[in-house]
């Protein structure tokens, strides 16, 4: 890239992005891989700060991923807030844990809102939620006793948390151009996975047939509307894409993987990998509880 051409390009950049963006990232996403290489090779060091600001505007793909995440965090945050404000009885020490989870979800909302605001993106408003799934009593409820029966509450919590884990996982590839946000999303993703596991632990303590991880042995708590939460979650083979080929893990010839019976090994493989979920599916699940 010719350095004069580069300066001309810089001048053409939306001028208010210079002032508006205050992040620390080095995105250069709009240039693409070859452009980045050319810039890195051609630009004197002193220019790098200007470049960072000029191209620091976050891509719409990245911000779309965070908007989806915010919708799901609104959903989870409101769920726990409503539960804690309801007459629901929390046995034993579970209330303390639920309060901690509620605080995390609110923190996630705050974090995502701040990120979107700093990127000058309109922050989506919090929708109105009905966690019975009756859309504000306009249709039959999916979970009529969600805030009066602790067992039902935990089932819905598990569905929401496992959805959150899968939805964040589905967005990581859209965040690859922005290391700061990718890392933040994964740090939230891990917290959501801990939430999901602890909720599963609470259900297990009450006698439910469920594990801390997603297992084909878990009792099915879905109905037709919530079936997408675990659809395609139990892959028994993982694709490894090399530069030349797609191979599958485990290979049919792999012996080191099987520590007991073939059946047990397959069960463990299904458990050992959590599968991502597309934005479309995540929004469909969220919409079960949104009425306005």
């Amino acid at each position: 890239m010719n350095i004069l051409k580069l300066l001309a390009d810089l001048a053409a950049v939306d001028s208010d992005s210079f002032e508006r963006i205050s992040g620390r990232r080095v995105v250069l996403a709009s240039l693409g891989q070859n452009g980045r290489r050319a810039v890195a090779a051609a630009v004197p060091l002193a220019l790098s700060g200007v470049l960072t600001k000029a191209y620091g505007r976050r891509s719409s793909t990245v911000l779309d991923a965070f908007s989806l995440a915010l919708t799901l965090e609104y959903l989870e945050s409101d769920f726990y807030t409503q539960a804690l404000a309801s007459g629901l009885v929390f046995p034993g020490t579970t209330k303390t844990v639920i309060q901690a989870i509620a605080k995390h979800e609110q923190d996630h909302v705050t974090f995502l809102q701040r990120t979107l605001r700093e990127s000058s993106v309109e922050v989506p408003q919090k929708p109105k939620f009905d966690f019975t799934g009756s859309k504000n009593a306009t249709q039959p409820a999916l979970f009529a006793d969600v805030f009066s029966n602790f067992s039902t509450f935990l089932k819905v919590a598990q569905l929401l948390e496992d959805t959150g884990v899968r939805a964040y996982k589905g967005q990581v590839e859209n965040l690859m151009t922005d290391n700061d946000l990718l890392e933040a999303a994964l740090r939230i993703h891990a917290v959501e996975a801990r939430h999901a596991a602890h909720i599963r632990g609470m259900r297990r303590a009450l006698g439910a047939n469920v594990r801390y991880w997603v297992s084909p042995l878990d009792e099915d708590i879905t109905t037709a509307p919530t079936a997408p939460v675990y659809a395609d979650e139990n892959a028994v083979k993982q694709a490894i894409v090399t530069t030349t080929d797609i191979i599958l893990f485990p290979l049919d010839t792999a012996t080191g993987v099987v520590t007991t019976t073939k059946e047990k090994a397959e069960q463990s493989i299904r458990e050992a990998f959590d599968e991502p979920m597309t934005e479309t599916v995540a929004r469909r699940i969220a919409s079960l509880f949104i009425y306005a």
Binding site: V172, E173, E192, A193, R194, H198, Y212, Q238, E271, A272
Partner: peptide, 24 residues
């Protein structure tokens, strides 16, 4: 590599579930 990143994410959350189990 995108595919590698996705694969790491599939494993990362399972490790978090393990950690939660051990904490309990």
């Amino acid at each position: 590599t995108k595919n590698t990143l996705v694969l790491l994410g599939k494993i990362a959350s399972v490790e978090a579930r393990h950690a939660a189990f051990i904490h309990d």
